[in-house]
């Protein structure tokens, strides 16, 4: 049985890092403007399409080594996805900066429908995919059970790629947030937007930057997921979006470390549930976890409780 536990831990970590990467977008936007970016899942979906497009174009011209293809895909997909985040903020959030709570939520849902349908029209409603490359795996554990069947727990190259790339991405993000001027502006805007703008910080630019960073992280997640699973359609952003949001809530919304931790917790919980209880109900389990956390610990693992002020 040990192999099964090890296998689920490996699956859970690689799934969880993806949720964490996407959750960073939710949590940063929430930290700065106090709103959920409903269209964030669609940004992730767009990055999956962009990945497939880049890979298709690249592989049709020249035969490149796998590592180079992956690096080029990352460097092409992430900036374009980030630009989607920038435009999303300019269209759906900027005009409603002063408005009450409900309006920006509805524009974001509208934007998410628009993006879904835009991709559906431009790329067709069928499933799309990328050829599987970077195949291969390492065997972590081998056991032979009583019936003489050999079971192995393995980690695929793609799962290693997910873990390494996600760690690098988060490290870069942590550096930007903690050691650069823009990151300092971000943190100060998160603490007090009005005061920051009085101190000469261009808060509009900071908000744009946060959307761009969030979309870029979702783009990184999208590339990694697409390389790992191979197929996707225009609807994947919806469920993944809710799950990533669940991860953000689990970790405590507003905290970047919390988003990664929440992602890992959710990924583990989900893959253990799928492996040992029931794979059909794993989405139900994730959503139920969201509701339970909302009810009993809305501040999450790392979040601080907020005091409502007039």
């Amino acid at each position: 049985m040990e192999w099964k536990y090890i296998q689920q831990i490996v699956n859970g970590i690689s799934l969880g890092t993806i949720y964490g990467l996407i959750a960073i977008g939710y949590t940063m936007v929430y930290g700065i403007i106090g709103m959920i970016n409903f269209a964030h899942g669609e940004i992730y979906m767009i990055s999956a399409y962009l990945t497939a497009i880049v890979i298709a174009v690249l592989t049709s011209f020249i035969q490149l080594p796998v590592a180079l293809v992956i690096v080029i895909t990352l460097f092409c997909t992430i900036p374009i996805t980030a630009l989607h985040g920038y435009v999303l903020e300019k269209i759906a959030y900027k005009p409603l900066r002063q408005s009450q709570q409900l309006a920006p939520l509805i524009t974001a849902i509208g934007m998410s429908l628009i993006l879904q349908n835009y991709v559906q029209i431009s790329q067709g409603a069928r499933n799309q995919g990328v050829p599987s490359f970077n195949v291969g795996h390492y065997i972590l554990w081998t056991s032979v059970d009583a019936a003489g069947v050999t079971n192995q727990a393995q980690i695929s190259f793609n799962q290693i790629l997910i873990m390494v790339a996600a760690t690098l991405g988060v490290l870069v993000l942590a550096y930007v947030i903690h050691y650069t001027s823009l990151g300092r502006q971000c943190r100060s805007t998160q603490q007090d937007r009005l005061m920051s703008s009085m101190l000469g910080i261009n808060t509009d630019r900071v908000i744009s930057f946060v959307f761009v960073i969030g979309a870029g992280m979702a783009g990184l997640g999208g590339v990694l997921v697409t390389l790992n699973y191979g197929t996707f359609d225009f609807f994947i952003g919806f469920v993944t979006g809710i799950k990533a949001f669940t991860a953000a809530v689990l970790g405590g919304i507003g905290s970047i470390t919390g988003a990664m931790i929440g992602g890992l917790v959710l990924g583990m919980a989900e893959s253990f549930f799928a492996g040992f209880v029931n794979a059909d109900y794993k989405d139900v389990f994730a959503f139920a976890l969201l509701i339970l956390f909302m009810v009993f610990k809305p501040t999450g693992i790392l979040g601080r409780s907020e005091v409502e002020k007039v």
Partner: peptide
């Protein structure tokens, strides 16, 4: 096929 696009645009434009 653009039905949903229209709904999205309605939500966006009306709310702005």
């Amino acid at each position: 096929n653009i039905r949903i696009l229209v709904f999205g645009v309605i939500m966006l434009v009306v709310m702005i």
